[in-house]
Design a protein around this nucleic acid. Structure first.
Length: 492
RNA sequence: CGGGAAGUAGCGCAGGCCGGUAGCGCAUCUGGUUUGGGACCAGGGGGUCGCAGGUUCGAAUCCUGUCUUCCCGACCA
């Protein structure tokens, strides 16, 4: 059914919006560019957050919390950093309101102007490095491996639910190291953590790579990224991990004495993923019937729907069996709900849980009980099967894993089919226009050529894949010599 | 910030050109019948038509301003 959903073919952007809104994940707030994440959407984020948080801790990190506000002057201490963020910062200029003498509610009290204006963090490198200065004197204070879960604000011109909002939730890891090698290893390790999370939990294959100078984080020496492909053929950066060199240590004068009593600047990394991942999840897996959640992070993994009839006794039997199933499934750690709300009918519930992307649905009626079976439907393939009630719990647990794998494999084939090697300019443009996806082409290595290609095609270099095959070739635009292919795509 | 579209009941929309007591579908509430893919019958409730001015005897409708949202661009996680 879902006759009120826009199809992907009709209007991909509208389809995405419909899913977010009608799937109950989020809605627009009264504040421009900001969204309300609804309980179902937040449950998804919590699941993602919990898995990531565990992975961070397993790799030796601790959580901390730094302020929302950053003194304006801090941002300007690192030149390229300020250049990257200055245009999108919200600024706090006053600390008090007062009653409008003209009776129009409240106004900003002009006498409460801040001596130094505060910016609302667009990211926290500056406040954190000014803090780290006080934490680090000796090599024995290193490394510092800290993460924070926070909200940040970037005043975007144009926003889209989850993909780009003025305020968003994320985590930002900020680490400090004694050596360059150790910092680079940390950067790579966290990229691997992200890739593992996105692939194994979100069922979304990614390409690990390095950004070109144009696409690099403001203030980084190197930006590593994971890039994913959406169903409309556009790429989406799913996470980034930055090797910051000594840029912030120098900007904030953070030095340490090494074992030989030499004073050196500290090496830094930062890395983050945001609620944008939810946008990636939606656009990679969902279909024209609604959301499709990967079981491992789905807020609800299984829903049981009773098929009642007039017979009160039969109804009681269904309830009893369903409640027993819930108990068994919960004991297996499966997130399950028994929806015996009698104000909606089964067909309505089927459509509703499809829209919300619940991986497995179990329907249970009097007829099933007589035959000792249940109807088990899987969301990813939209198939139904009659399954014996004996051992149903085990069946469901296996099915959830199968759905997880199937979703990953589907996304992987799609991704692989949409990486196209292209060696001529005409084919490059044609591939972008007609097929989309990643275009693997030679590039002469200059920012000028990258800019020119972006201007002509709107495609950017998404990344230079890690462990990229070296191969002599000619730049797709300029014909100048090149040593490797890079991945171009139009991107979110 | 440029181009386009739109704001009328919780949601989706009609009405607007041609000013005259605000309507439809869904949802909601009550009662009943139902329940294997978004049930049916009967009855009920819900609106200062985004906001602020103006024109007019009278404005959802005409005029001016303003705010918000969506789409397409520029910018970006």
């Amino acid at each position: 059914m879902a006759d009120n959903l826009t199809s992907r073919k009709q209007d991909y952007a509208q389809w995405y919006n419909d899913l977010v809104l009608k799937g109950g994940l989020a809605e627009h707030s009264d504040v421009r560019g900001c969204m309300v994440i609804k309980p179902y959407g937040f449950a998804l984020w919590e699941n993602m957050r919990d898995v990531l948080d565990k992975m961070f801790k397993e790799t030796g990190h601790q959580n901390a919390y730094f302020p929302l506000f950053i003194p304006k002057s801090y941002l300007s201490k690192e030149a390229s950093h300020v250049e990257g963020f200055a245009k999108e910062c919200a600024v706090v200029t006053h600390y008090r309101l007062k009653n409008d003498p003209n009776g129009n509610g409240v106004i900003v009290d002009p006498e409460a102007k801040l001596e130094e204006e505060l910016i609302v963090r667009p990211t926290s490198e500056t406040i954190i490095w000014s803090t780290y200065k006080g934490w680090i004197q000796s090599y024995r204070d290193l490394p510092i491996l800290v993460n924070q879960w926070a909200n940040v604000v970037r005043w975007e011109m144009r926003t889209r639910l989850f993909l780009r909002t003025a305020e968003f939730l994320w985590q930002e890891g900020h680490t400090a190291h004694a050596t360059k090698e150790e910092a680079i290893a940390e950067t790579e390790q966290m990229l691997d953590v992200y890739a593992k999370f996105v692939e194994e939990y979100m069922a979304l294959p990614v390409i690990k790579g390095v950004k070109t100078a144009n696409e690099r984080f403001a203030g980084a020496e190197d930006t590593y990224c994971i890039e994913a492909l959406m169903q409309d053929g556009k790429a989406l950066q799913a996470g980034t991990s930055h090797f910051l060199g000594q840029n912030f240590a120098k900007a904030f004068d953070v030095k340490f004495a090494d074992k030989n009593n030499n004073v050196e600047y500290v090496w830094a990394t930062s890395w983050g993923v945001s609620t944008r991942l939810i946008g990636a999840l939606i656009m990679a897996h969902s279909d024209d019937e609604g959301l499709v959640m990967p079981p491992r992070i789905a807020p609800l993994q299984v829903v049981i729907v009773p098929i009642y009839n007039k017979d009160a006794e039969a109804r009681q039997k269904i309830d009893d069996k369903a409640n027993a199933l819930v108990k068994e499934l919960r004991a297996q750690g499966i997130r399950v709900k028994y929806d015996n709300d009698d104000t909606t009918r089964p067909g309505w519930k089927f459509a509703e849980y499809e829209l919300r992307g619940v991986p497995v649905r179990i329907a249970l009626g009097a007829r099933d009980l007589e035959n000792n079976v249940a109807e088990v439907a899987r969301r990813d393939e939209k198939t139904k099967a009659s399954v014996s009630l004996d051992g149903l719990t085990g069946h469901v647990a296996t099915l959830l894993e199968e759905i997880q794998n199937n979703m990953y494999n589907k996304a992987l084939s799609f991704r692989n089919e949409n990486i196209t090697k292209v060696d001529s300019w005409d084919a490059f443009v044609k591939t972008l226009d007609e097929k989309g996806g990643f275009v693997s082409s030679h590039w002469d290595g200059t920012p000028e050529t990258e800019d020119k290609i972006k201007e002509l095609t709107k495609a950017t270099i998404r990344c230079i894949p890690l462990n990229n095959e070296q191969e002599a070739g000619a730049c797709v635009l300029t014909g100048k010599p090149s040593t490797q292919r890079v991945l171009f795509a139009r991107a979110y």
